[in-house]
Simulated scan of single mutants.
Amino acid sequence: MNVAQLGSGTPEIAVVAGVHGDEPCGVRAVRRLLEERPTVARPVKLIIVNEKALERQVRFVDEDLNRAFPGDPDAATHEGRLAAWLVEELDGCLTFSMHSTQSHAEPFAIVNEVTDRARELVPQLPVAAMVETSNFAEGRLFSEIDTIEVECGLQGSETAAQNADRLMRAFLTAVGALPGDTIHRELPVYRLTDVIRKERAETYEVFVDNFTEVKPGDPFAAADGNRQVAEEAFYPILMSSNGYRNVFGYAAEKLETVSSQSTAE
């Protein structure tokens, strides 16, 4: 784990990248910021987390780090130990964590809960939506640390790396660490309601688009040609044919639209 800092003093803001070793977009953004070393109005902690997985270009070494929190410094797994160290390092920090996905090209934000702070900050980011995990946060970083997580784009793409840089700088501007103004957006808000599981199969298909409502009776995915049909309406989130080993993605409900009115202090 590589920990660096911009500015002097004790940081209350942190940026995290490289939770997964096959998602380099945020790592590139953090390294670029460290090369530039801009003057900041508030100290910022910058962490590249799973260096061992990044070196191997794999998602994880022993287990998914973003399902391993709070971790244990004496854990048998690399990620279990890493989770505990990261929680300690981020104590007291509002954290911005960058990821990428195989399911959706347009950036969106994920939060544990739609708090007042999330309502204020997330609409200032260049994202298309905000997703609340609700009951599906177990083991994730924001189950332990106040975190705004962003999916920057398609895994391994140059666009995701460019998006990560824009998203990180917008966040640091919104919290008053970098100078400038942010653009305020109206964002739809979704809440995860269920996991869409998939059976073991040779081939998988997804027939629907993320954030587009699936109607009752619509086929939305298939395993070896066996179609799954919606029993009730839902919005697919993080749906892809091979993004996860045991699930296609998540079902969600649409809650509201939020719009930030002023830059956070």
Score class of each variant (00 low, 15 high):
131 V>I: 10
206 V>T: 12
230 A>H: 01
128 A>K: 04
43 P>N: 07
155 Q>V: 04
120 E>Y: 13
179 P>V: 06
129 A>T: 00
160 A>E: 06
58 V>P: 06
97 S>I: 02
73 P>L: 12
81 R>G: 14
76 A>F: 01
1 M>A: 10
123 P>D: 10
31 R>K: 13
43 P>G: 05
212 T>M: 02
190 Y>W: 07
33 L>N: 10
240 S>F: 02
151 E>L: 09
20 H>Y: 15
67 R>H: 11
233 A>E: 05
86 L>E: 09
56 R>H: 07
207 F>M: 00
214 V>K: 06
221 A>N: 06
26 G>Q: 14
81 R>Q: 14
17 A>Q: 05
189 V>Y: 03
211 F>W: 10
41 A>G: 15
42 R>I: 04
212 T>A: 03
262 S>H: 12
45 K>W: 13
251 A>R: 04
131 V>G: 08
77 T>W: 08
188 P>N: 13
211 F>D: 05
42 R>K: 15
182 T>K: 00
222 A>L: 03
112 N>I: 06
4 A>M: 09
148 I>H: 00
263 T>Q: 15
173 T>Q: 12
84 A>G: 06
73 P>F: 08
31 R>L: 14
209 D>Q: 11
205 E>P: 00
125 L>P: 01
40 V>T: 03
202 E>F: 12
14 A>C: 09
81 R>K: 15
153 G>E: 14
15 V>C: 14
258 V>L: 08
162 Q>S: 00
84 A>W: 14
256 E>H: 08
163 N>I: 02
228 Q>C: 00
201 A>G: 15
86 L>G: 09
60 F>Q: 07
58 V>D: 08
29 A>D: 11
22 D>Q: 04
199 E>W: 13
171 F>H: 04
198 K>H: 13
238 L>F: 10
47 I>E: 05
189 V>A: 05
12 E>W: 02
23 E>P: 03
164 A>Y: 01
3 V>C: 10
132 E>H: 07
63 E>T: 10
1 M>L: 14
77 T>A: 06
228 Q>S: 05
103 S>K: 01
39 T>N: 07
256 E>L: 08
173 T>S: 13
76 A>N: 00
1 M>H: 11
163 N>T: 02
160 A>V: 02
108 F>G: 07
69 F>T: 03
199 E>K: 15
164 A>R: 04
8 S>V: 06
62 D>W: 06
256 E>P: 02
57 Q>L: 08
191 R>Q: 08
186 E>R: 09
104 H>D: 09
109 A>Q: 00
